[in-house]
Amino acid sequence: MNRLLLNKIVITLSTLAALMGISFLLWILVTLSIRGYHSIDWHIFTTDLVNNGLRNVIIGQFILAGIATVIGVPVGMMAGIYLREYGINSKFAMIVRNLSDVMMSAPSIVIGIFVYGIFVVPFGGFNGWAGVIALAILMIPIVVSTTDSMLSLVPQELREAGIALGASKAQVIYKIVLSAAKIGLITGVLLAFARVIGETAPLLFTSANNNFFSFGLSNQYPSLTVSIYHLALFPSQTSQNLAWAGSAILTLLVLFINLITRFIFKPRKQK
């Protein structure tokens, strides 16, 4: 009887805890959807921030995150390949692997201030490149870690089979191992992209913001997240509505990218 009672208490408590977690998430989503729904119209997608639209900041956010991906993914993947295929368990590889893990949990605002110090101050002002670099720095350890762990899932026999056919180590890695780990690697890149596209702190002191449409990364550069931050603080109903719309769009974007990664990863799980 006692055991049954304990069982029931534990089940009730853990169910309540789960419900609480989900309810906050739903609360956020519902509020965002309602507020966002009332604030989103076509006007937002066709005009720039200066005319109370979000076109330039959405595109700006994608450009910042996109260039950061182009820089961060190759560097992160090469480092991951080094760690798993060449360094393996050498002392140096272990140190790099641990440092990369530490970097992954570094607060993004710290990275923002670091980049402010080396890429904003010496160049005389906020600029888009600094924002790109901050995002790339944020991205690299994530890509390193997923590459490292995805490559560790490739069976050792596959590498040996390639070597046994007379392939060199590099040929085995680039033709066989990477293609065996392809799905995991793509997922890692998408997740890293989803992570940086919602970042505000690293952009706040680096690319800052811009009311106008711009491709000029050497000046202040528009981004959705920093805009939301400024709009939400601005004491005007129009600005705050725009902030709600921006938040809803951003949340949907991140949700969408996460769903895509789930979708890509699914067929593999069924095997």
């Binding site: 040996e160 390639g162 070597i163």
Partner: peptide
């Protein structure tokens, strides 16, 4: 040299315990 080993492995093939088809 790696080249000598590559030549050797083209003269002596190997089949493993678990099938190891390449993902292609």
């Amino acid at each position: 040299k790696e080249n000598d080993l590559i030549n050797l492995r083209q003269r002596i093939g190997m089949i493993f315990q678990k099938p190891t088809p390449f993902p292609m």
